[in-house]
Design a binder for these strands. Structure first.
Lengths: 208, 208
DNA sequence: CACGATATGGAGACAGTTTCCGTTTGTCAA
DNA sequence: TTGACAAACGGAAACTGTCTCCATATCGTG
């Protein structure tokens, strides 16, 4: 998709205009603009808009893709510079911070993750992979429990994104992150049956 | 809303027909049916459908309301018969079980929780209150940490609901619950600054 | 049973989306 | 430079689903 398309000069120009306008609008809080009107606003015909971005989600994804890949490489950097468990924690907090800075990102991600038409969701999948890697590293060195998959963490992130436009979301999102980070650190006592009792063993054997 | 409306005989009959048909369809996996077609399928005019259920969400809420209040009273029962922390854990697992049994419930709840048009969301709020109560009880008796609000837990539930139609969701949802339950049990060492080190102190260090 | 209140159905107005195709523009080879 | 062809454009028109409105039918009560 990135390569393989020479893409004619005017086409690229239009595409960029569209993207720029979308960024501008998203940044100012307009998300539910009519698709038609958006085309006019950007100064192109409806047909053109549709050719470049067949759906609303395609546009949103394009707008936030670099944001998204930036986040993924941030994950990779953290993974290299910090112990695994801390890297994961840092990344998750960073994630919420990002959401806070770019209002539209939350909405977009929620849609992207929810999309079952798996055609466009690979932005979401990329994120999933980053989280999976962080988690795996933590499991490997024993600081994170091994009995929960990255999918569980993604579900939580999904929830955060989906609920992010509600009042007080920032604080609650942070709490949710705290919760799963601490949850991930509590290493399960072997052989313990599911629910029950002294759930979290002292995590990293931590304290004296 | 429940009381105060005598509601004429034929009206009630129609309402019930509508509800029954909706249940039937939801149970068979049809959620995105045209609203108009749905009316025809139930054998009433569009006007009638709209009078009884002004929006798609209103219908969904009506269909699942008893399911929902059942869940809330289940929460109350658990709270009375178990120590707080365990009651919360049990409830959350029960919640996922419910989702699994009634496919449509997840979708409905996700919508309900997301709805900012706070008119109809009181089903979601009721659930929120139930969770808040469970949590508060746990905080009171010292088995659950006091620094995260019910909102955080609701976010996670939201995420679970929103992602529930994906493959393997059941297992991941269970993991997510495990995560927050353990997270909630890890009592924060006082004065510790946010992220970092030995997050989870031994939780239910609590009980002797 | 007659009358007012209540409910019904479905045609049609409406809003947003998407397609389609005649016209314009860019690109490349001669 | 110019000609020819493919690629891209724009916007009118068709479509799709939602929602309103009101003439008509039905209920229930004095």
């Amino acid at each position: 998709m990135t390569t393989g398309k020479p893409l004619r000069a005017d086409a690229r120009r239009n595409r960029d205009t569209l993207l720029a306008k979308a960024r501008e609008l998203f940044a100012s809080g307009c998300f539910d603009l009519r698709f038609d009107d958006f085309a006019r606003l950007a100064g192109v015909g409806t047909g053109t808009l549709y050719r470049h971005f067949p759906t609303r989600e395609a546009l949103a994804e394009a707008v936030y893709r670099e944001e998204l890949t930036a986040m993924c490489s941030c994950a990779r950097e953290l993974q290299e510079s910090l112990p695994a468990a801390e890297a994961l924690a840092a990344f998750l907090r960073e994630f919420v911070s990002h959401l806070h800075t770019h209002q539209g990102l939350a909405r977009t991600l929620a849609t992207l993750m929810a999309t079952r038409s798996d055609a466009l969701a690979d932005g979401g999948r990329e994120l999933g992979r980053a989280v999976a890697d962080l988690l795996a590293a933590g499991v490997e060195d024993g600081t994170l429990r091994g009995d929960v998959g990255a999918g569980a963490v993604m579900m939580v992130l999904h929830g955060i994104c989906a609920a992010y436009d509600q009042p007080g979301a920032r604080a609650e999102a942070d709490s949710a992150i705290t919760l799963i980070v601490d949850g991930l650190r509590s290493v399960r006592p072997l052989g313990a049956s599911h629910g029950q009792g002294g759930g979290s063993g002292s995590a990293s054997g931590v304290a004296p």
